[in-house]
Structure formats: C-alpha cells, structure tokens
C-alpha cells in the first residue's frame, strides 16, 4: 500500500459523462494487479471529505496508471474538471484483484457500462485466443471506445435501446457466447450494475461455471479499518459480511448473498 501525490498526465472525456484519466505513479503502477483499486483524494479541502474508490483500468509500462470514471456525483464532477499537471493524492493499490484462469480456459469478460474499467486490465493478461469481451450499455452515446482505453482485443457490444450492437441486455450476449463455445472449462468475470451482476451470477450458477465479480460500495477508508463497505456473504462462509476493500473488490460470485445486496 502506497500513498503519494500522482500527477495527472491527461484527463479527457471519452463518452457521455465518462472520462479517462492517466496518473503518474511508478510505484503504484508497478504494484497494481488486475482488479485492484485506488482511493483517490479528488479535493484537498474538507467538502467533499472522503476519498473515492476507483478501479484501476490499466497500467502502462511508463509508470502511469489509468482510470475510467463516470460523473455521478460531486466527487467525480470535481475529478472531471481536473487538468493535466495537477497532483492528486492516491492510496493504493488496494484490495484483492482477479484470480487468473489457467491458460487454455475460456474467459468471458462481462461489463455493464463503466464496469468495463477493471476488466480492461484483466483482458490484457488472460489468454486472448480463448476470451470474449462483452459490454452492455444503455445507449450508443455511452459506448466507451475500448481500443482507446487499452483493450487490445475486440469487444462485443449490447445496448438496451438497440442503438448499437445487440439489442438487449449483455447477459443475452453472454448466453449466446457460452452456448457457441460449447464444452470445455470456462470462467466468467463480471463488473457492472447490481441487476446485471445478479443476472450473471444466477446464469453462471445454473451453468455451473465459476464466476468472479468486482463489487462496488461506498467506502470511507479503503484499507479495512472502518468496516463500512460490508456486503453480506452467502451461507457457509466464515464471516457474516465481506469487506469489499480487503476481501474484495473481486469475489467468487457464490460467496456473496445476492438476495441481500
């Protein structure tokens, strides 16, 4: 865990309400693993007070790590106005990332909107010949150009309104891809809004395919001190609650009590 001021290398809008930021921190970039996150201090005053948890989208070989974020509140609005050269305090890398599948296994990466962020870095390390990267958006205006944010692979898109790609939820793309792949070992990695994650968890449970999900909660500390980011664990787990900051943000889907999320 490192805490340091990282300089903004760039910060630009790449889709509706969606921004891409590069931060220079060779130490954090070197330590980060796919699926981990940082706590970013977006403002040096006391209002807003707390750091924001953000998934690391990608790490460059140049000591830069990249974030993708959607403007949803005051913190992200402040972030969106930050300019090149400003320095932001970053705490990270934090949490447990994705457990990588053995080579040869089929990987299905399923994202909803901004949930694409942690899956970008994952897509760079899994076996590309056996990978499908599926992303759902509400509408074409929200589409994050995956090649611009570091995905060196093709991405299949679904939109709720049919303005791009498959019309319908991304889980329909997942179903079609899994069916097409047929027999063989497979794993699903998912990040996105809760209804999507629930649907993916239900499908993978039915198919008996392992699934790892990256969860998002509000967080105060990010390091396990406050116990604020609790999610209910499924029965049979050692602890009644997981803490997203330390036990996650990536969880095996069957360790989470989806009915109480």
């Amino acid at each position: 865990m490192i805490e340091e001021e990282a300089g903004i290398v760039f910060n630009r809008q790449i889709a509706d309400k969606t921004y891409h930021m590069g931060l220079e921190s060779p130490r954090i970039a070197a330590a980060a693993k796919p699926g981990q996150f940082v706590m970013l201090r977006v403002f040096n005053g006391i209002d807003p007070l707390l750091r924001r948890p953000l998934s690391i989208c990608r790490v460059g070989g140049d000591g830069i790590f990249y974030l993708l974020y959607r403007v949803v509140g005051r913190g992200t609005a402040i972030m969106s106005r930050a300019v090149k050269g400003e320095r932001l305090s970053v705490l990270g890398p934090l949490g447990r990332g994705f457990k990588l599948p053995p080579p040869g296994d089929r990987s299905f990466l399923v994202a909803g909107g901004i949930g694409i962020a942690p899956l970008i870095s994952l897509s760079q390390v899994v076996d590309k010949d056996h990978m499908a990267f599926l992303v759902g958006y509400r509408s074409a205006a929200e589409i994050i150009p995956a090649e611009q944010v570091g995905a060196d692979t093709s991405v299949s898109i679904a939109t709720d309104d049919g303005t791009a790609g498959h019309r319908g939820p991304v889980t329909e793309l997942l179903k079609a891809n899994v069916e097409r792949a047929g027999e063989g070992r497979a794993i699903v990695f998912a990040c996105g809004p809760l209804p999507m994650l629930k649907a993916v968890a239900a499908l993978t449970s039915k198919w008996n395919i392992p699934c790892q999900v990256s969860l998002e909660t509000s967080m105060a500390c990010g390091v396990g001190a406050c116990h604020g980011c609790a999610v209910k664990s499924s029965s049979g787990q050692k602890k009644p609650y997981h803490h997203v900051c330390q036990d996650g943000p990536v969880f095996d889907a069957d360790t989470v009590d989806w009915g109480r999320l």
Partner: peptide, 19 residues
C-alpha cells in the same frame, strides 16, 4: 457482525456511520 449495509454516507464536511 455489525449492521446491514449501507453503513456509511458522506455528508457536508463529514460522514455518517452505522457500522
């Protein structure tokens, strides 16, 4: 075990917790 989530929320110049 603690309370059901959400357990924290940011407020002006502060935060509420019900851990």
């Amino acid at each position: 075990a603690g309370n059901r989530p959400p357990r924290t929320v940011e407020t002006p110049c502060g935060m509420l917790n019900a851990i």
